[in-house]
Amino acid sequence: MDLTVAGYMKELSEHRIAASRCNDCDALYLPPRPICPNCQTRKMSVERLSGEGTVAGLTSISIVPSAMAAKGYGRKNPYVTGVVALKEGPSLTARIELPDDGGEIQSRVGMPVTASFEAEVDGDETRVTLVFQPS
């Protein structure tokens, strides 16, 4: 794969979470990147991650951006998004689906979650986003 934003998105569209590992210092990066900030090397290998992790921080958004308003989200229908620490080490930002049991948002920190791939067709384009579910 190309170590570009488009390369990562293409992997997602094929239901894979791609990361890059530095061949010199072994650090693992998500999204995959071409230059290691740790040792400046450009020798990177691509690895695929499991999609299993825990919630590091999250929020339920009521005042929504226009793209989410167009999908019917808003004050009466908020959505949840957050930061997930994957078991391999790196973390990523993604939407999270929570059980609707009235728990306080901060009580979900640490919850184990698993990635699913959500395809959205917009004209000729299909965009795949990651959405995490409770494990």
């Binding site: 590091a56 921080g57 999250l58 929020t59 958004i61 005042i63 929504v64 951006p65 793209a67 989410m68 959505y79 998004t81 957050g82 930061v83 990523l92 930002t93 993604a94 939407r95 948002i105 901060q106 009580s107 979900r108 920190v109 640490g110 965009r127 986003t129 990651l130």
Partner: peptide, 21 residues
Amino acid sequence: VDQAAFTFPGLYAAMGTAYMA
């Protein structure tokens, strides 16, 4: 934004939950 649909308050809210927890 494109992947996670974060807003700016959302980003600082996520930090807030990590802190509160």
